[in-house]
């Protein structure tokens, strides 16, 4: 009962802080870039995950969760695509508040977490089992730490921008990403494939969309006073 409460609390806080990051007040401007990320072709099927080896996690999921490397929505939309300003954005300062990453039900929440280089990152274990957090960093320093249930959060940060795959060595199906960026102008697509980068001053920007399986696509966008639009289309293959 108590655990459930804390789990619920943890989840709320997680979502709250994630929202907070996306909602970080931009330095200036009221312009924005919105759009949708979709695919053409047939994407690979997401596979159900058998968690039976970890019963305390398995019972948290009424229906088995699936792999999330190509998460799709209705209308060929793509979820968990990071869309961010890769050029033309100046003067982002690192916010004082950190971001929160949760391990709950043997799943990383959120699947893709964006943060600024140098921003504090707190990693929580909300489960009854030990987790192992292994960010497979290549540009930053790779590390690998275990977190027994009930231990304090791991407090850390990343110094350089990088898309870092995160895996749990104890539960091999647990996979997620840290998107460490040098801009706070970023949005992650939801199930409907939409994104919304707010708070842009008028000007010319390069926008990049990153999807873990398909890589990146960029386009140049000119932002005026209102909302500019940019759509991204990835080519999906069944295998």
């Amino acid at each position: 009962m108590r655990m459930k409460f804390f789990a619920a609390l943890g989840f709320t806080v997680a979502m709250g802080s994630a929202l907070m990051v996306f909602a970080t007040p931009p330095p200036a401007g009221s312009g924005s870039i919105t759009g949708k990320v979709t695919y053409t072709g047939t994407p690979m099927k997401m596979k159900p995950i058998d968690m039976s080896k970890e019963p305390s996690c398995a019972k948290q999921h009424a229906t088995p969760i699936t792999t999330e490397n190509v998460a799709t929505g209705q209308g060929n939309t793509l979820e968990w695509v990071v869309v961010y300003i890769s050029a033309g954005d100046e003067g982002t300062t690192t916010p004082s508040q950190g971001v929160r990453y949760d391990q709950k039900g043997c799943q990383y929440l959120p699947h893709v977490l964006t943060m600024l280089a140098g921003q504090q990152l707190q990693i929580y274990n909300d489960d009854q089992t030990s987790h192992n957090i292994h960010p497979l960093a290549k540009v930053n320093q790779e590390w690998n730490k275990s977190q027994p249930p009930g231990s304090p959060p791991i407090d850390t940060k990343w110094d350089k921008p990088e898309f870092i795959a995160v895996k749990c060595n104890i539960h091999p199906w647990m996979h997620g990403y840290f998107a460490v960026l040098k801009t706070s102008h970023v949005s992650v697509t939801g199930e409907d494939g939409t994104f919304d980068i707010k708070g842009l001053a008028p000007g010319k920007y390069t926008v990049t969309a990153w999807q873990e399986q398909y890589g990146t696509k960029t386009q140049d966008v000119t932002v005026g006073a209102g909302a500019a639009t940019a759509n991204f289309v990835f080519t999906a293959t069944p295998y």
Binding site: S130, N132, K145, S146, Q147, P148, G150, S151, P152, I170
Partner: peptide, 13 residues
């Protein structure tokens, strides 16, 4: 501190 955060040892420790 890494092997036993808050005194409970990690599996690797």
């Amino acid at each position: 501190a890494v092997g036993a955060p808050s005194g409970v040892m990690t599996p690797e420790y």
